[in-house]
Design a protein around this nucleic acid. Sequence first.
DNA 1: ACGAGGATGCTCT
DNA 2: GAGCATCCTCGTC
Length: 183
Amino acid sequence: MSRSSIVDLLTGDVREVAPRLLGCRIRTRFDDVVTEVELTEVEAYAGDEDPASHAYRGMTRRNVAMFGPRGTLYVYRSYGIHWCMNIVTGGDGIPHAVLLRGGRPIRGRPAMEARRGRADRLTDGPGKLTEALGVTGAHDHTSVLTGPVRLLDALRAPPAVEATPRIGVSKAADEPWRWVVRD
DNA sequence: ACGAGGATGCTCT
DNA sequence: GAGCATCCTCGTC
């Protein structure tokens, strides 16, 4: 089965799509400053089937973007301080999404260091990754297919991945819906 | 290596 | 008013 487009990449059950995103890239371009990472850590959130999802109880002011088309970015504020980013996979009003939790910088490292205010631990957490890429609430509801925050296919063969329970959730804490690139 | 605690603000009950 | 899909610093071992 071959992949013909990024939309195809995002099509399917969110628990199949999420691990498939490992090795793919997120590239942002703001005022001609380009930063790019290769994804190494993701989590799946399965809407009304998933008590840990922000969309478990339906649409709220915060989570509207999750009900948008496949490829919509859902950016929310975490613990009052950080921004975290998801890519919507459900489409058709189905609020399934993949939380981007970590990556490896492959382009624009100086800009990432400037945004993070340090030179180490640039992208090894959802808040850090989002900050390094310059993504904020202003980008909520934009599309990773056409917007300033772009999802790009992997440059090489898919990496070996490993499934674990999700981080920091209290509901459905046993579901192994977090995937990381195996070291 | 690991754990505790603080910063900080918004969402939903 | 409670509870966060977190991060950082500073203790201690």
